[in-house]
Design a protein around this nucleic acid. Structure first.
Lengths: 190, 190, 190, 190
DNA sequence: TATGAATGAGCATTCATTCAT
DNA sequence: AATGAATGAATGCTCATTCAT
């Protein structure tokens, strides 16, 4: 696939639009997120500019999704690498809550995009799940976790985190973090 | 609140449209669910007929939401009423999965509507959470559950169930049920 | 033109619908007057009944217009027949205000229909004007009125009355009657 | 009230649409005036363009109304400023007929909009009446006019003018002007 | 006759996208 | 690269009218 390298200003503009799109999706509903609303938030004078920088709305959504995912993964990965699987799982959860604390809009936008299943990629979208399932499996092999279906447990853990994200407006995140770590540990350890 | 009794045909048509709306929301995205798509699925010749039977889109969505919620609650309540809180919680989870098995589209539609926050009611929408939090609190007082924040734990439990619903296309529900019951029990019992 | 005689109940229903249409046009704008609004005011269970009794909306409007006009003319004619033209003109104006006092909705509806030029008839619509112009002409020939264009003066007189009708919500009709009689007399007498 | 300055093209398009709206309202009924009819008259390819330039139909109607009113008032004011009240009243009437001669469609559209009471402004809509009533009152104080209710007389005078406007298709405006001036003078002078 | 369900054209409005500048 | 004007398809909704019962 041949594609021209993007210039610096081009990249800056795209980043600006992506940021505005995230803010818009997090503030309004996904269904209410229009180019007009994004352009207003980005201080752009025309929605045409969004179409100029992104092939279509789908591409913009995909880029937003990938952008948040990458920053999320970098953030979480930087806080993992613990010795044991239990500790690693705990670190994962703490990192998730930490990211949520600092980047609530990003996580909300991310979940809303995923909920509306508009992501074209597919592969990337599931990477979250796969990595966690792998960690759980390794912990089981190491005898740190009890016997359970790692894929299903991964669904559970990520769902709990998502629940916290969607309720983060009305919940105390310190309490959530503590309870989440405790509950997951109880549910998984051998 | 005065309202004329609805005729049998009227009720049948409304039920048909509600069913078509559920199917549409479950199949397409919530954002893509238009009167046209619903009418097509219901075999109606005109979107005008939907407007004839429902004041506006909001009312249709509200009715769909309330309809699923009522059937869900009847279904679950009929399977609860156990002696202890641990058993009650288990029964709640089993009933949830059983409903999902039989009415997957309903649950998906329900969650998608709630995710897009378009429900006018408000009170009803949270009843799920409140009832569960109360059960957890009672279990704690009875000494069956360990100490945790009941509201946060209710968020966790419902989030896990939601995770199963949204993944139910690719997961084995028997496994999910077993794992869900086990995980929640481990996370909550004293 | 052959047409079956209308039964008594048929006539009663038509009269009921016509009355409801008048009330609706007078209360709402002409543009907002729908079959639904008329049916509601008539206590009818279906707009289909209006279509059953009237070929289409145009016919209903025409009938409403002719109905008000006929009652108006009967009312006014019963109060005219004075000796001289000046007295006759005065009687015409007094009768107009009297009709307005008792049948404000009818006159408002009448004017609104005419303003929106939806009347098919044409001949009937102008009869008001023709009769008045004739009276003015006769008064001129009798030497009671000064020289003026009778058609134009008829437009003036009817316009003044219309102005009173449209403002009758906020004006004192006793004052209006007095001023109208005086002004028209001054403007016409020789 | 903050609003971005409109570009030259923008202003030109808006003016074009306003002109088309006036022509449409004057030609068709007010009730029949749709965006489609206006777009056709303006040579626009899409009704969407009207929505692009005007927030909604109400704003377009308000702008049309204010536009005609402003041009009318400028036109009339430029022809007034006479010494006495009688002369001033006469100048007002002559100016009205002159404007009608040159801008019949504008006046018809204006009256139709007002008749259908769709004007949001409210304040401006009545200025016509207030100014005239004031002139009449001043003329009475100066002894030029006889005793009458100035508000009612203002209603009469404006109603007469409106009558001429609505009949201007079938009346000789020269005759109307002459008769109007004479009739009003007779009805008001002391 | 009367009902209310059904029809399909029409409405204003929003939207992503294109295009000339 | 950026603007904003233009396009036309799509949306929810209303309407007069038709039709089976």
């Amino acid at each position: 696939m041949l594609m021209r390298a993007k210039s610096v200003t081009e990249q800056a503009r795209r980043a600006q639009i992506v940021a505005a799109a995230i803010a818009t999706i997090a503030e309004l509903d996904y269904a209410e997120t229009s180019f007009k609303a994004i352009a207003a938030r980005a201080g752009l004078s025309s929605t045409g500019l969004i179409s100029y920088h992104f092939k279509n709305k789908q591409e913009l959504v995909d880029v937003v999704f990938a952008d948040v995912l990458e920053r999320f993964q970098d953030f979480v990965n930087a806080r993992m690498g613990q010795a044991g699987a239990r500790e690693e799982l705990r670190a994962f959860l703490v990192a998730n809550i930490a990211f949520l604390r600092e980047h609530r809009a990003d996580m909300v936008a991310f979940l809303r995009i995923r909920a509306n299943a508009a992501v074209t990629d597919g592969g990337i979208a599931a990477s979250d799940h796969t990595a966690l399932a792998t960690l759980l499996r390794q912990g089981q092999e190491a005898g740190e976790f009890r016997a359970f279906d790692p894929d299903v447990m991964a669904v559970f853990v990520l769902a709990m985190r998502n629940g916290v994200v969607l309720r983060s407006g009305s919940l105390d995140l310190d309490v959530c973090e503590q309870e989440l770590v405790a509950a997951v540990d109880l549910a998984t350890r051998s």
